[in-house]
Design a protein around this nucleic acid. Sequence first.
DNA 1: GTAGCATGCAACCGATCAGTTGCACGATGA
DNA 2: TCATCGTGCAACTGATCGGTTGCATGCTAC
Lengths: 108, 108
Amino acid sequence: MISDADQAQAVFAALADPTRRAVLHSVASGEASTATELAARLPVSRQAVAKHLALLERARLVDAQRAGREVRFQATPGPLGEAIEWMESVGTQWDERLAALARAIDKP
Amino acid sequence: MISDADQAQAVFAALADPTRRAVLHSVASGEASTATELAARLPVSRQAVAKHLALLERARLVDAQRAGREVRFQATPGPLGEAIEWMESVGTQWDERLAALARAIDKP
DNA sequence: GTAGCATGCAACCGATCAGTTGCACGATGA
DNA sequence: TCATCGTGCAACTGATCGGTTGCATGCTAC
């Protein structure tokens, strides 16, 4: 089992690469759903796309489904939400810190 | 000028490393705010922390302020929000896709 | 002024990553 | 059946990254 922190980290790592984000975008919008289709749209080889899809699958951002001789991918919504939650929790710490600073300045 | 997409990408790349997330967490919560303080709390050298802080600063997640002979860092809330917006926009594409799929299944 | 502390800069190492090419395997359709 | 197409596996290269050590610089306090 992967912990929430590891899950969020896998999502951030997956989203850090521009090509991978393009792959995810194409899959999420339904423009393409197999490695070959994606490679035709992007300026990289099919193998490069396949590697990105494998990484996205490990991060649980996409899901693979075999259909005959081809493998179709689709986006799964869950993990993105967890990453957003993490970011919001850290952002809240920010805000509290800034609020505390503001209070400290207001009350001398 | 850095575009929004590049900005979001810099944030994701910054958040992909666990040590860097620990650094950001400590800075955001106000536990430590100089490279030396952070290095004392984390199992890495001061230089490693300094590199992480430089990267976080490039991603505009923290802000440096010189105070005499030391440099204090503080978190800046903006870019995290942009990254969240990007994730939510992609997530919305997901949801619309899944909704369309559900409609297609419901209406034969 | 001088010792001490925080920072900055540079070189280096090992690991990981993005990408490629080449080839083998399995399903499909004429 | 056999040519074709999509996929999977493996090896390789170049670049980047996280981390270290060593040394120089600059502020501070006694």
